[in-house]
Design a protein around this nucleic acid. Structure first.
Lengths: 240, 240
DNA sequence: CGGAAGCTTGAATATGCTCAACACGGGTGG
DNA sequence: CCACCCGTGTTGAGCATATTCAAGCTTCCG
């Protein structure tokens, strides 16, 4: 699974980048050899355990990162503690609000996570000089905006069952975009609490909707986080 | 108020652009004289009455636009008719999902609206050749994403009163970003039905929360759409 | 004047929340 | 090895908030 990527001129590719997902699909894919070499000199791979905070709200930003492995959870918290998850990021997403001086949200590791951390100034210099990079970030931002707007429909207009079904559908299809199979089995990257915060529900309601969907045969719960969906299209019909 | 802008070489500025808000603050502000001239040749100002659809969901996109005046409402609809407003756009925002082949949402005139419509291909050519334009669009997209995420917190985690207060606060501060005054008076650009669809509530609940806030003295309802807020900071405290 | 659109209000209902108890599994320490 | 605890998840009973359904009001316009 984690086999090393093959480059034509592997010797030219920085060591740190050889087995990196983002190397081809992420932002580094649009960098020249020279740019990549320069950037890699100042980059560092970092690991976070599930639950750890990567960057807290209103912390100063002095680096960006690429998600290499795992799931990142972006969330906002009201003064009295109510929390809302406003985005999930998977490999090879770029992490960090471009041009932001300080963070406006919490960036947490939802699962165990590997990141490739890059200095803020270096990225911003590259964005200014490499239109392809700027274009790629524009496309990611547009995609995130699309996703956010889809999610607003879920938050504002769907019932609890539909919300949970929509979440499961999101995860199921994201894991394996080439979903030619009717059935899918996967592990949830989020706790029930995280799912609740994502859906604007309580833990209890999420749990009830899981058992609800299970009773209807839409999903099978193998082991709390380990699920399978016998028929993805049937699941989709519960998404509202 | 709607006085003509003064340019150093006004003669070089296309006639159609002379009294345009977007000319300086919007996308046209980053175009060269030559680019602007070329673009203006293929642009057309269009007017839409409140309630009219500018672009429907899944319609093919063959133009972008700048908002010159009025408020645009972006919304999504579920199969059974449930609707969610996912964004509002004001002058001088750029309108249209870049690189999209067909629309993924409804674009409606919330108020009477003036747009400057520009051919899709022309804009995309400019984006590809003018990094400043690409940068400006990236910044607008990032701003929209920030707004969408703020709104997700409102949709997912706030009570009906907080939602309505948040909406009023949004409109009040957007009208007059230099809000040195304690009190503000303004006209709502949306009907109760639109507000409900924006907030994920029913019309009735929105109405009840208006009278609720009125009774508490947080707002004064002069004439349905015409409101005044005696103390903006007091309103803010109801936003959760 | 009649009718439609937009808004408000009331009463009954339903959906999801709160509070509380319990189940399960993994880790720690006696 | 067992006892215990803690984190995570499930389930139940009662309750609160927002919805539904229904009626009525005002304003605008033909």
């Amino acid at each position: 699974m984690a086999s090393e990527r093959q480059d034509v001129h592997n010797s030219q590719v920085p060591r740190i980048c050889r087995s990196c997902e983002a190397r081809h699909r992420g932002i580094c894919g649009v960098l020249s050899e020279r740019e990549l070499l320069e950037l890699s000199r100042h980059s560092r791979q970092v690991v976070h355990k599930a639950g750890e905070t990567v960057i807290g709200d209103s912390e100063e930003i002095n680096s960006y990162a690429s998600v290499m492995h795992g799931v990142i959870k972006l969330s906002k918290v009201l003064e009295d503690g109510r929390q809302q998850v406003v985005g999930l990021q998977f490999a090879p997403d770029f992490l960090g609000r471009l041009f932001g001086k300080q963070s406006t949200l919490n960036t947490d590791a939802a699962s165990d996570v590997e990141l490739c951390r890059m200095p803020k100034a270096a990225i911003e210099r590259l964005v200014a000089t490499n239109p392809a990079l700027e274009g790629l970030l524009l496309e990611q931002t547009l995609r995130e905006l699309d996703e956010a707007r889809d999610w607003m429909v879920t938050l504002g207009r769907k019932t609890a069952t539909e919300k949970v079904a929509s979440f499961l559908y999101l995860i199921a299809t994201h894991k394996d975009p080439a979903h030619n199979e009717k059935s899918i089995s996967f592990e949830l990257p989020l706790t029930r609490a995280d799912i609740a915060d994502f859906l604007g529900l309580t833990i209890e309601t999420v749990s009830r909707q899981f058992t609800n969907l299970k009773r209807k045969g839409v999903i099978e719960i193998e082991h709390h986080r380990q699920l399978s969906v016998p028929d993805v299209n049937r699941l989709k019909r519960y998404c509202g």
